[in-house]
Computed example of a mutant assay.
Amino acid sequence: MAQLNPVMRRRSSVWKRYGFGYFLLSPVILYVVVFQFYPLFDTVRLSLYDYSLLSGRGISFNGLENYKQLLLADAQFWPIFVNSLLWVLGSTILQFAVAVPVALVLNQKLKGRGLWRGLVMVPWVAPVVIIGIVWKWIYDGQYGLLNYYLKELQLIGENIVWLGDEFWVWPALLLTSTWKGFPYITLMILSGLQGISSDMKEAAQIDGATAWQRFIHVTLPLLKPIMYVTGLVSIIASWTKFEMIWALTGGGPGYATSILPTYLYTNSFVYFDLGKGAAIGTLSMVLILIIAFLYSRLLGRNID
């Protein structure tokens, strides 16, 4: 019994030192376990069952059959996976393409700079459903503003059904996603620009570097860490968010704009095939983990 006393004393010392901190963290830990880990594990468990509410068969264990059906027999799965890559990578790249110059402009000494910085955040904080309704009206094939102004500029001769045409629907979706998401990346890059010492830029300017050379060789390398993290967050967030696509197209026409989250929703809550929906969710999780790993390996090597 005496041998346990030192161990018990150490535990008592640790509890006295960190006990209150553990107590404060306990609600967060409880929330993560109940609302994050349990649904995750239950989704994986449910994916191993044949569970369709419309079949009348009840629930029965079928092992990996849902995965085999999706990967080998489902004609829609792999095209939808390609759509998911197009949605995530296209949205992220275009958002960066807009956010970087906007952040550079907002970092300058502009008149009313605080107002412009506030206005640029409006798309990001606006509800996705409201944005979807507004942009659906803009893209309307008969009365939409986009068709109206393009015809006024004589860029098109007749109306285009933007959200019903298999060619134009993806540019329309990516444009909306870019408008919605670029303020977040702008904010992150702007915070990085605020942390760059002006002395380095002035030294490069004294050495004869042009504005472009200062951006490429001074500003951009110093922004790499924050751009790396922001890109990873944007990829994961875009992968799991489907509200914009659902509000604009519902995944159509057909499955032309469906991504894995919309396919999961359709199978689980439209066709009520919960086993297949759980398998789609599990595969989606595995695929985004692989993408995040590849992103980290390819782009995270030179990040300090």
Rank of each mutant, 00 (worst) to 15 (best):
L190N: 05
E152H: 11
V33E: 08
V134D: 03
N83E: 05
G275H: 01
D74T: 00
P183V: 10
I236Y: 01
L299A: 13
L299W: 15
Q108E: 15
I138M: 15
I156N: 05
G141N: 11
K151H: 10
S13E: 15
D273T: 06
L287K: 07
S52Q: 09
A73D: 15
V105P: 00
W116K: 09
Q142N: 11
G277C: 12
Y18T: 08
P27N: 12
R9K: 13
G281Q: 07
S177A: 13
L30F: 12
I291K: 02
G21D: 08
P261F: 05
H217W: 10
A209C: 15
T262E: 06
W170G: 02
V14H: 09
G251L: 02
L54R: 13
L54P: 07
Y149M: 05
R11V: 15
S284D: 14
G58I: 06
N107I: 09
F272I: 02
P79I: 09
W246P: 01
P221Q: 08
A237T: 04
S284F: 05
I259A: 00
N62V: 13
Y67I: 03
L190W: 11
Y143L: 08
I189V: 15
A237P: 00
Y31L: 14
L174H: 04
G192T: 08
W116Q: 12
G281A: 15
L222D: 01
Q108I: 04
N66V: 14
L232E: 01
G164K: 09
N107R: 02
R297P: 00
A203D: 09
A97D: 03
K151T: 10
F77W: 12
L46F: 12
E158N: 12
S13W: 12
P253E: 01
W162G: 07
K111T: 11
L298T: 03
G21K: 04
W246D: 07
L48I: 05
P101Q: 06
F215L: 14
Y148R: 15
D199P: 03
K276Y: 12
L289Q: 06
A279E: 02
V134H: 04
E152P: 00
P101L: 06
Y295D: 04
Q205C: 07
S26G: 06
F215I: 03
S234W: 00
L115F: 12
E243K: 04
A279I: 05
I291E: 01
A278N: 09
M8N: 08
D50W: 10
Q213M: 11
R301I: 05
V28W: 10
L24D: 09
W124M: 09
V233C: 11
I185P: 00
G281K: 08
T262Q: 06
L153S: 07
F269Y: 14
V161R: 06
G56I: 10
K224E: 02
R11S: 07
V134Y: 06
S234G: 02
W212M: 12
